[in-house]
Design a protein around this nucleic acid. Sequence first.
DNA 1: ATGAAAGCGCTAACAT
DNA 2: ATGTTAGCGCTTTCAT
Lengths: 333, 333
Amino acid sequence: MTVGDRRTTLADVAAAAGVSVALVSIVMRDAPGASAATRERVLEVARRLDYQPDSRARLLRSGQSRLLGVVFGVQHPFHDDLLTGLYDAAERIGYELTLSAVTPRRDERTAISGLLQDRCAALVLLGPQIPAAELATLAGRLPVVAMMRAVRQRQVDVVRTDDARGMHLAVDHLVALGHRNIAHVDGGRWLASAERRQGYRDAMRRHGLEAYAKVVNGGFGEEDGARAARELLDDPPTAVTVFNDLGSTGLLDVLRRHGRAVPGDISVVGYDDSSFSRLAHIDLTTVAQDIETMATLAVARAVERIDGTRVAHREMVIPPRLVVRGTTGPAPA
Amino acid sequence: MTVGDRRTTLADVAAAAGVSVALVSIVMRDAPGASAATRERVLEVARRLDYQPDSRARLLRSGQSRLLGVVFGVQHPFHDDLLTGLYDAAERIGYELTLSAVTPRRDERTAISGLLQDRCAALVLLGPQIPAAELATLAGRLPVVAMMRAVRQRQVDVVRTDDARGMHLAVDHLVALGHRNIAHVDGGRWLASAERRQGYRDAMRRHGLEAYAKVVNGGFGEEDGARAARELLDDPPTAVTVFNDLGSTGLLDVLRRHGRAVPGDISVVGYDDSSFSRLAHIDLTTVAQDIETMATLAVARAVERIDGTRVAHREMVIPPRLVVRGTTGPAPA
DNA sequence: ATGAAAGCGCTAACAT
DNA sequence: ATGTTAGCGCTTTCAT
């Protein structure tokens, strides 16, 4: 079963329908300039021959690609949801998406380079880790929208969550439940860590609780949360806000193994609303980002840049919301 | 900041380097036929001009694409790991990957159609849900490798896990721990469900335990597992094998809420080795598929078909392995 | 409404 | 080793 069969081309359809290729092209693109009768006949023939337009030739000739390149990280919380939203938004606006994944053995530069060769009209990067300067250089070549990450460089558009506000929501919620001794496990060198940490500090100050403010070193993974939990057990607070959901599960596990009831003794708030945080087992109170809005805005912005539309704000900072589940409750008496 | 700047082309590089485009092409493709000096000079110029080859033009002209189309499902267990493995395998063999996602609002047909227009040389489908007949039709147009799913049609290549064997491993493990009263929560109408269920039945029979064999209706989700757990509580077995990890967590949660100790009273085995099954909280004994081998085989097979190589077996069935964690233990006395 | 012809950026034959 | 030329499948003038 060798596969040597050349695919059906415009010319084949034209020949079979007894018209010129130009006319078939018009019909396939649904462009004006063909009679209804011809249109129908051509479409019929195309269907019969199982014709599929060659997007490469199409884009090559027409010069502009209506193609958005998306770099996403395999195994990152909510990148899947983000992709879903991006596909929706792109479809609504008549653009195609082409994906390039970052894996443990395929770095961001490789992923981006592939998209450049595909001649995307713009790039949407989900939580890019490369230096801001590099992003700026890239943005000199084509529009770049960075998501889930702050970038100072003015060449780069940004759609991200108001992480400080996310921590305010978390702390406000805990304070409303009567907590005062609230600690924070941060994300270490991770990108959004600084802003979340600062948001936590500000929120504590706003409530006049700076005396209780306490930041413990954490990280991205479950083990980081577990380590932080062991550290906190010496002098346990009544509530903890954690950099992300993964860390929260590690922390929860250690707390429970040491006989602390959650939320009876200690309340815990995560960040990300990861899919596993919804599992009945875990049932984590957490800060959710507004994925759908962000995806829509990112695509809209990319297209604006492609079209050369003037935009008011380079950076779009979206408020998150708190999802209250079972790991938070009234402060112990 | 309008983006009207035409991208650098081969011709630009040729002009700047003072050579013909053909020569630049030779250098860029690392093909024989250029002096070392020229090679170096051209590469230098290309770097300076930030030249990126246009993959569309390249593929269009060269007629063959060295491009593998991959359809994956957003939010499916281990599809991420699979992508990682596929990228590795493709890179080793000099092929590119182009991804197309299935999302809640973007179906498989749409995803496939996009790849067809990109003129992929072959398709790799992760757990395709479309009817086998449709897969066969598709395979008439280009090589198609289906992963994680059995397909009878002989046009379609298959790389999948020996699911029956997976259940044997689970049951053997439980029997070795002294269990006899072992139930199975199946996956309902889900694709691999029938084979896993049958595997369970066979394994029970092999151990002379058909009298204890009991299959409960389940499904793909956590709630399905929870429902099954409630049903099982009337006359609880000492161990349960579940269709997948997600169902297992639902089941585990209900069991614990009803005061059953796991694995003290009841042992539980999942299926998939999903990322969350490793969480300390969940720590689920589960059946793991050999992702890396499967990815390598799928890519190899796709390339064999593209090259017209004769292959011995259309279907490659890979043995899974059991990952023993904390949800299984000795049968209660 | 329809067709002829040029050309997008590249590779592959075939010169030299 | 290097250059010239044709053409991949399509879209886009420009004719008719």
